[in-house]
Amino acid sequence: MSGFTLDDLAAIVAARADATAETSYTRSLIEAGPARVAKKLGEEGVEAALATASGARAELVAEAADVLYHLMVALRVRDVPLADVMAELERRTAQSGLQEKAARTR
């Protein structure tokens, strides 16, 4: 089992965001702006969904990695710390998903 975490990925994205666009794909995405980052995240999400439907495990693993990477870039471009997302997940998991959804619709 790998010791690599989302915190590690966020740190790598942060470091690469400080590089030049000529040497860093991450930096080039950030310089392209939030709309471009959103488009890439959406594309990768669709590809992950299609891989889920196809049943090809290796393809889903690769697409899921792309989604997580592009999500980290999206968080970076909007200046949202991963810790904020994790805190929201922690808050939501304090109850069942059905209870959480029911509370949102009220």
Results as ranks from 00 to 15, higher is better:
48 A>N: 06
50 L>C: 04
6 L>R: 11
98 L>Y: 11
6 L>P: 02
29 L>I: 07
93 T>S: 14
76 R>L: 02
48 A>M: 09
60 L>H: 07
64 A>S: 04
32 A>N: 06
21 A>Y: 01
19 A>C: 11
54 S>G: 10
6 L>A: 09
92 R>H: 07
17 A>T: 01
46 V>A: 11
54 S>Y: 06
87 A>D: 11
13 V>P: 04
69 Y>S: 03
10 A>I: 11
92 R>I: 05
48 A>P: 00
28 S>N: 10
7 D>L: 13
98 L>H: 14
31 E>C: 08
27 R>L: 05
105 T>I: 11
74 A>Y: 12
18 D>V: 07
97 G>F: 14
57 R>N: 04
4 F>Q: 00
104 R>H: 15
13 V>G: 05
90 E>H: 15
43 E>G: 00
83 A>Q: 00
24 S>Y: 00
27 R>S: 02
1 M>S: 12
87 A>Q: 08
74 A>Q: 07
97 G>Y: 14
42 G>I: 01
14 A>G: 04
32 A>T: 03
91 R>E: 07
20 T>G: 14
26 T>R: 07
99 Q>K: 11
55 G>F: 05
46 V>E: 02
77 V>Q: 06
102 A>K: 04
36 R>H: 12
5 T>V: 05
50 L>A: 02
88 E>N: 02
95 Q>P: 00
7 D>P: 05
73 V>D: 00
94 A>L: 05
75 L>V: 10
27 R>P: 00
78 R>T: 15
83 A>T: 01
21 A>H: 06
45 G>N: 04
7 D>T: 13
74 A>R: 09
79 D>H: 07
18 D>W: 12
89 L>T: 08
35 A>W: 01
91 R>Q: 05
101 K>D: 15
89 L>P: 03
82 L>G: 06
95 Q>I: 13
38 A>C: 09
74 A>M: 08
38 A>V: 05
9 L>H: 02
92 R>Y: 11
55 G>D: 01
85 V>F: 00
66 D>L: 08
22 E>R: 08
38 A>K: 14
79 D>Y: 03
100 E>V: 12
59 E>A: 06
36 R>G: 01
105 T>Y: 09
37 V>I: 10
19 A>I: 04
4 F>E: 00
44 E>L: 02
91 R>N: 01
30 I>L: 11
65 A>T: 03
19 A>D: 15
58 A>F: 15
11 A>C: 10
96 S>E: 09
50 L>Y: 12
16 R>C: 04
